[in-house]
Nucleic acid binder design. Structure first.
Lengths: 251, 251
DNA sequence: CTTTGTGAAGTCGTTCACAGCA
DNA sequence: TGCTGTGAACGACTTCACAAAG
């Protein structure tokens, strides 16, 4: 997961498990596609396949929202779209600011997926005075000096941080002080925020590292299949599983 | 979390839980920062704070790797950096290709976090013939036609998909056929891949939707605190928790 | 007969709390 | 004494399997 929450003791929000909440957007996306193809109903089996989960999980997830299906038939697509949208709070408009208009910030500003789901890019903010006034994705970039004014003037409660790592915490502090209570962080840093503020992080490098781990493991398995138990029995080959002796030793 | 795996029955790789693997890059980042400041040792408490987790979890995580600490003292920073790097497979070089050089693809190509951790952008690939030859982040973009040649010629096993949703599955199929076994997917689609191929996805829109859910909940709680139990008892207020009556009704 | 909704069982992950070691 | 390493308790999430409903 390129993602994860920070802080906060995993409270069950309105009785809906966090894991379920994280899948609702997935179901919504699949349902929207069906809706566009004018499909009237889906079974849990079909929808689960489209969303990439198994059907038992999907039914359990939906059971937290209520009894929205019809036994022997399935789920009404339009109705489910509405219910999930409402549950996720997408029936209202969410003004969002993006701070840090580098490559990534510009990519985010141009990303179509925002607008389509109730999110509106209310402002782009950057610390570089040379950027000020320049339009990115049709929106003029504003200077960091006006951050508080922008947040308060637009009633923004969701902020996206796409600054370099060093700038992230100060920006975060200012966003929070100005009233932002949800932050999506793309900077490779741990942000500390007061209680009541949600932080979600996306870290590209972390995702790749997780893939590398599994990739390495695949390679190791192939090798192991060839050399098939030469010296050690597969089970219990000494404590700390060392490969080669490292150059550095512990104190 | 902006992330999540697709397919595959959550196999415990080399005995290390998936949840632990996902946190190793976090520890590594914190340790690298300490290393740059020439800090020789850290306690689980300090390191946990820097990584944004609690110390019990950190110790448990490390216990899966081996006994790398010293009781009464803590962990040797350099030694741990080495051990975690090795465990994640970062002591080797991972050539990576990025397919789809739009705003996001360009941002990824320019992202410094890759090179710093053993990942090397081996090639940039785009379907637009007009892009071919143009340098992005100092690397010339190549045309999709040569995808297989590029993958095989560079021994690439990790691919990043940053194409529009519609192009993602075909691109994925070609990557896999050419030998890629790990994919980082930024396109908002569920990719289907054969067994043995890992897919991780990053979906910006999904992250925002999860934030919106919690944001909405916060607003609801404030309102509830004011109107304090007017009509319904907090517990059991009828089955499906409806807000307003929807425009569409179920079949 | 088909497909949902859900208790019960099972699996995985986190936290506690303390024995063990330096 | 201080801090790690870890069994054991706990809690969250998933899967099973079937009763209930259309």
């Amino acid at each position: 997961m390129a993602t994860g929450r920070t802080h906060r003791p995993a409270t069950r929000s309105r009785g809906i498990p966090e894991a379920t909440v994280a899948r609702l957007p997935l179901y919504l996306r699949a349902l929207t596609a069906l809706s566009e193809r004018s499909v009237p109903t889906v079974s849990s089996e079909e929808l689960a396949a489209a969303a990439g989960v198994n059907s038992a999980k999907l039914r359990k997830d939906f059971s937290y929202l209520g009894s929205y299906g019809t036994r022997g038939v399935g789920y009404d697509v339009e109705y489910l779209v509405y219910q999930i949208s409402r549950e996720l709070g997408l029936t209202q408009d969410w003004p969002v600011v993006i701070v840090g208009i580098g490559n990534l910030g510009a990519a985010l500003a141009n990303y179509g997926g925002f607008a389509s789901r109730g999110f509106r890019v209310a402002a782009l903010i950057d610390a570089d005075p040379a950027m000020a006034g320049k339009p990115v994705a049709g929106i003029p970039v504003q200077h960091t000096d006006d951050l508080e004014k922008i947040i308060e003037g637009n009633g923004v409660s969701i902020g996206v941080i796409a600054t370099p790592a060093g700038a992230a915490q100060p920006v975060c502090d200012r966003l929070v002080a100005a009233g932002v209570t949800s932050i999506l962080n793309f900077a490779p840093t741990v942000l500390s925020v007061p209680d009541g503020v949600d932080v979600r992080k996306v870290d590209l490098s972390i995702e790749l590292q997780i893939l590398a781990f599994h990739e390495q493991r695949k390679a190791g398995e192939e090798a192991a299949a060839e050399t098939a138990a030469v010296t050690l029995t597969p089970k219990e080959a000494g404590k700390g599983p060392d490969g080669d002796v490292p150059a550095v030793m512990p104190a």
